[in-house]
Structure formats: structure tokens, C-alpha cells
């Protein structure tokens, strides 16, 4: 059996995949025009009522905390696959250019959390 280090990670989900009991990783603010109509802080545990309110306000996504249950082996294999795909996508990029390098680092960091 492979070793498993459980970690919490921030994930963005479309609203129809967000469930009651999930914990917001980032504040969720909804504005209508210039008016703030809903403001939930990071750490807030979402309830069915919250979700109904978010649907009524036409929210489209939320950033929640998710426990990553993958084993270290699976995680490192999946991360290697992501890195390899990115290498393909960036095959013509000038990686000496600092902004392109920063962008690549951002995508790699996002894809391998």
C-alpha cells in the first residue's frame, strides 16, 4: 500500500458541483450592478439555504477547501502527466522570457495542487 499524505487544497467548482457542508476557501461576494448583495467569508460552511441563495443570485462558481485523498504515488504520477502536457503546450514558448516563465509556473502550480 502506498504512503498517503492528506492535504487540504483550494478548488474552484461550478455552482452545480458545490454541495452543502463544503467550506469556502475564499470569500464569496456577489454584486448586482455596483451593489454588494451577498458576502460570505472564507471558512464559512455552506448550507442548503446558502446554496439556494447563491443560485437565486446567479452565482456561477465557488472556491472551496477539498481534502486531497490521493496517495503520494498517484499524486506524483498525475502531476508528472500534467507537467508533460504543459511541456507540449509550451513547446514553442520562449522560456527565457520572464513573463512567459511566470505564466508557465502559474499554470503548473495550478494544475499540480
Amino acid at each position: 500500500m502506498s504512503k498517503s499524505t492528506t492535504i487540504e487544497r483550494q478548488r474552484y467548482f461550478p455552482l452545480h458541483e458545490v454541495k452543502a457542508g463544503m467550506v469556502l476557501a475564499r470569500p464569496l461576494q456577489i454584486t448586482e450592478g455596483r451593489m454588494l448583495v451577498s458576502n460570505m467569508p472564507a471558512g464559512h460552511v455552506l448550507t442548503e439555504t446558502d446554496l439556494a441563495q447563491l443560485r437565486a443570485r446567479h452565482a456561477q462558481y465557488a472556491c472551496v477547501l477539498e481534502t486531497d485523498w490521493r496517495s503520494d504515488l498517484v499524486r506524483s504520477r498525475q502531476n508528472a502527466l500534467q507537467a508533460s502536457r504543459l511541456e507540449q503546450i509550451f513547446r514553442h514558448a520562449d522560456m527565457n522570457d520572464p513573463t512567459t516563465r511566470m505564466f508557465h509556473a502559474a499554470i503548473l502550480g495550478y494544475r499540480t495542487i
Binding site: Q10, R11, Y12, F13, P14, R26, Q60, Y61, A62, C63, F103, A106, I107, G109, Y110
Partner: peptide
């Protein structure tokens, strides 16, 4: 980039 990438992918 993190919140931008997350919100774009979710939307």
C-alpha cells in the same frame, strides 16, 4: 493567476 485560472475553469 490562481483565482483567475480557477474562476475561468469553473465558469
Amino acid at each position: 493567476f490562481f483565482p483567475i485560472l480557477g474562476s475561468i475553469e469553473a465558469r
